[in-house]
C-alpha cells in the first residue's frame, strides 16, 4: 500500500474512533464540548510513556485509556446535574483547563509540545476500532444500552423507574473518554508531534461534528459522519479558498434538510418535515413543543 493510502486510512480510522467514543457519551443525551481534552490526555499520557520510558505503544494506549477514563468519570458525574448549555460550557472550560495545563507543564514541552512519537499502524488503529465496535454492538443490545436511551429520553422518568443513573452516566462518560484517549494516543504516534493547541476548541468541535453530521441515533451513523468529514477535505481540495465557505454552507443546508444527521430516522412522530412545517406555521408556534433535552 502506498504511504498516501496508508496515511488516509490511518487518519480516517482515528477519526472514526473519535466519533465512536463520542457517541457513547451522546447516547445518554449528554453533549460534551471538551472531548478534545480526553484526546489530549490520552495523547500526552501515551507519548510520555513511549518517549521517556520506552514502553511499547499498545501498553501505553491502555494506560492512556485508563487515565482518560478517570477524567471522563469526573465529567460524567457533573454532567448529570447540568442542562445541555451548561454541560456544554463546563466541558468547554474543562477542555481549556487541560490545554492550559499542558501548555504550562515543562515536562511535556509546554507550548512547544512533544516530538518524535511513532508506531501507529493500520493494525493497531483498526483492531482498536474492532474492539470498540464489538463493545458497541453488545452495548446497544444490552440492558445498559436501554438505560442510556432511557436517560436520554427522560432523566427523571429513568430515575423514577429505578435506574441508578449516576453510576450509568459516570460509566458512559468514562468509557467514552477511554476510547477518545486511545484515539488521542494513536493520533499522537501518527503525527509524531503534539502541541496543546492541537487539542483546542477546533478539535473538540470537529469530534462533535462527526457525530452530529452522521446522526446520533446509531453508532454507525457517527462513524459515517467521521468518514465523510475526513475525506471531504481530500475530495474538495480543489475548492481552495472556497473550501471553508462550501464547508460552512454544507452544515447550514444539512441542518435544514436532515437535522437528525445523515443516518437516522427523520422524526419520532408522524409527518415529514414539510408537513410538520405547514402544521407549525398554521398554528403560529402556539404549540412550541420541543424535544426534552434535560
Amino acid at each position: 500500500m502506498s504511504p498516501y493510502a496508508e496515511a488516509v486510512l490511518l487518519q480516517v480510522g482515528i477519526n472514526v474512533l473519535l466519533a465512536l467514543g463520542y457517541w457513547i457519551a451522546v447516547s445518554t443525551g449528554k453533549y460534551s464540548f471538551g472531548h478534545a481534552a480526553f484526546m489530549a490526555i490520552g495523547a500526552y499520557a501515551a507519548s510520555m510513556l513511549t518517549l521517556n520510558f520506552a514502553w511499547p505503544l499498545p501498553v501505553a494506549m491502555l494506560v492512556a485509556a485508563v487515565v482518560a477514563a478517570v477524567a471522563g468519570a469526573v465529567i460524567g458525574w457533573m454532567a448529570l446535574r447540568l442542562s445541555l448549555l451548561y454541560l456544554a460550557i463546563i466541558t468547554f472550560i474543562f477542555g481549556q483547563l487541560v490545554e492550559l495545563l499542558f501548555a504550562q507543564w515543562d515536562y511535556v514541552g509546554g507550548a512547544t509540545g512533544m516530538i518524535g512519537m511513532t508506531g501507529t499502524t493500520l493494525t493497531l488503529v483498526y483492531s482498536s476500532i474492532a474492539v470498540v465496535v464489538v463493545y458497541l454492538v453488545l452495548l446497544t443490545r444490552s440492558r445498559l444500552g436501554l438505560a442510556y436511551a432511557a436517560i436520554r429520553e427522560d432523566e427523571r422518568a429513568a430515575t423514577a423507574s429505578g435506574l441508578r443513573i449516576t453510576r450509568i452516566a459516570v460509566g458512559a462518560f468514562a468509557a467514552s473518554a477511554a476510547v477518545t484517549g486511545v484515539a488521542g494516543a494513536l493520533a499522537a504516534h501518527q503525527l509524531m508531534i503534539i502541541t496543546p493547541s492541537l487539542f483546542g476548541p477546533q478539535q473538540a468541535l470537529l469530534i462533535i461534528l462527526y457525530c452530529v453530521l452522521g446522526g446520533v441515533q446509531y453508532f454507525w451513523g457517527a462513524a459515517v459522519g467521521a468518514i465523510v468529514l475526513s475525506v471531504l477535505p481530500i475530495w474538495f481540495e480543489w475548492l481552495n479558498d472556497w473550501y471553508m465557505i462550501v464547508y460552512g454552507l454544507l452544515f447550514v443546508v444539512l441542518m435544514i434538510v436532515r437535522p437528525q444527521g445523515l443516518i437516522g430516522r427523520s422524526e419520532r412522530s408522524g409527518g415529514g418535515p414539510l408537513l410538520r412545517r405547514l402544521r407549525r406555521d398554521g398554528a403560529v408556534a402556539v404549540e412550541r413543543e420541543r424535544e426534552p433535552v434535560g
Binding site: S2, P3, Y4, A5, E6, A7, V8, L10, Q11, A187, Q190, L191, L198, Q202, P233, I234, E237, N240, Y243, M244
Partner: peptide, 19 residues
C-alpha cells in the same frame, strides 16, 4: 492546501510523495 489544519498535513505530504 492544508487549510490551516496541521493534522491534514499528515495526509497531504504522503499524497505529494506518493501520488
Amino acid at each position: 492546501d492544508g487549510q490551516n489544519n496541521p493534522t491534514s498535513l499528515a495526509t497531504l505530504i504522503p499524497q505529494l510523495a506518493t501520488r
